[in-house]
Amino acid sequence: MPYGMSKDNNILSARRLFKAYYIGDSKIDVLIEVNLNIDRGESVSIRGESGCGKTTLLNILAGIERPNSGAVNWKGKNIFTQKPAQMADWRSIFFGIIFQSYYLIPELNALENVYMPARIRGELGIPEENRAHNLLERVGLRKRMKSSATTLSGGERQRVAIARALMNKPAVIFADEPTGNLDEKNGEGIMDLILDICEEENTALVLVTHNKKFANRTDRQFSLHESKLENIS
C-alpha cells in the first residue's frame, strides 16, 4: 500500500502519546508526544535501539498497555476509554499480535493454538476450522498441524504464531521483533511470510524491528529516538 493514503483509509491513530516508567524516585520518559496514523493495508516499521520503547509503543497501539496520556483512536474512538472487556473484544476482532518469543500455549498443538483466537471470539465452525488449516498450510506447516507446540522448532513456532495472529482476519497485525529469536535464513523466510500474507489479506502491519533491511521493506519507516518518533521514510 503506497505511502500517503487518503484520510478515509485511516484505521488507527495515536495522538500525543506520553509514557513514562517510574523506578523508585526516578522517572524515565519512554514516549513523548508520539503521533502515528496507520492506514488500512499499509505496513509501517518502527526501529530504534534496544530499550528505547519500541515494544511499549507497540503494546500501547495494540491496547494492551496504557499510556500516561494521549489517545489511540480506533475507528474514531479512543480505545483506552473503553471498559477492559470491550478492549479485549476489540483486540480479539481487529488486532493480531506476533511476539518475538512466540508465546504458544504449550498444552495445545499447532492447530489448536491457531484456532484459539477464534475460540476466544466465540466463533467455532467449519469456516474457522478451514481457515486455521489453510493458514497453517500457508505458513508451511501442513504436516505439523497436530504436533505439540513444545515439539516445534523456533521457526515453526513463529509460523504458528503468525497463523494465530491472522486467524480472526484482523485489520492490523502488530509484530514485535518477529525474527529476533531466529537465524538470518529463518528470519528472512518469516519476514517474507508476514509481508506477503498481510498484502494478501489487506491487513495493516506495524513492525517493530532492529533489522534495517526488514524495516525498509515496509511502506513507511519510523525511528524511535530519544522518546520521539521520527518518520525516516
Binding site: 494492551i64 479485549a88 499480535i97 508465546y103 484459539m116 471470539r121
Partner: peptide, 16 residues
Amino acid sequence: TREIGLLSAIGARPIH
C-alpha cells in the same frame, strides 16, 4: 503468567 498475558493480548476477557 506469560500465557495469561498472551490470552489477554489476543482478546480474552478478564472474567473468562
